[in-house]
């Protein structure tokens, strides 16, 4: 069996950015690429970058995404956050308006969910 590289970032331009005083790796759209460089402090700053003030409900979703990524190696889809994480899709749209999947991944420091071509 081949080794599975769960954090696929080949082909995407990587650069360093300074967020909340920490130097971190980001892709060309500003998504963090290193799971372990993230902290809740950084998450808060990332959220405010896109106009979101974090509440307990927001953290509930972000913490699910972080944990799920650790075990699954891919960013959870909205369907998964609802089915497995137990957060109704409607609420996700209220918490992270317009583009919840993309916004949650951005705040959680995870790769953008794969929008399959």
């Amino acid at each position: 069996m081949l080794k599975h590289d769960s954090n696929e970032k080949g082909g995407r331009a990587l650069s360093l950015a300074t967020i909340a005083g920490h130097e971190v790796h980001v892709d060309d759209e500003g998504f963090m690429t290193e799971y372990d460089e993230w902290s809740e402090d950084l998450g808060k700053t990332l959220a405010s970058n896109i106009g979101i003030e974090m509440t307990d409900d927001h953290w509930n979703a972000i913490r699910f995404l972080r944990e799920d990524y650790k075990s699954e190696g891919v960013t959870a889809t909205l369907r998964r956050v609802t089915n497995t994480g137990g957060i109704p899709t409607k609420q996700l749209f209220q918490l992270f308006p317009k583009k919840p999947a993309k916004k949650m991944a951005y705040i959680a420091g995870l790769p953008k969910p794969v929008g399959c071509v």
């Binding site: 069996m1 081949l2 599975h4 369907r79 998964r80 497995t84």
Partner: peptide, 17 residues
């Protein structure tokens, strides 16, 4: 399989994870 019943495989070999 995942939430949409798609089998989780290695993307280069199609072997089940």
């Amino acid at each position: 399989a995942n939430d949409l019943n798609y089998v989780s495989v290695d993307h280069e070999t199609c072997l089940s994870k």
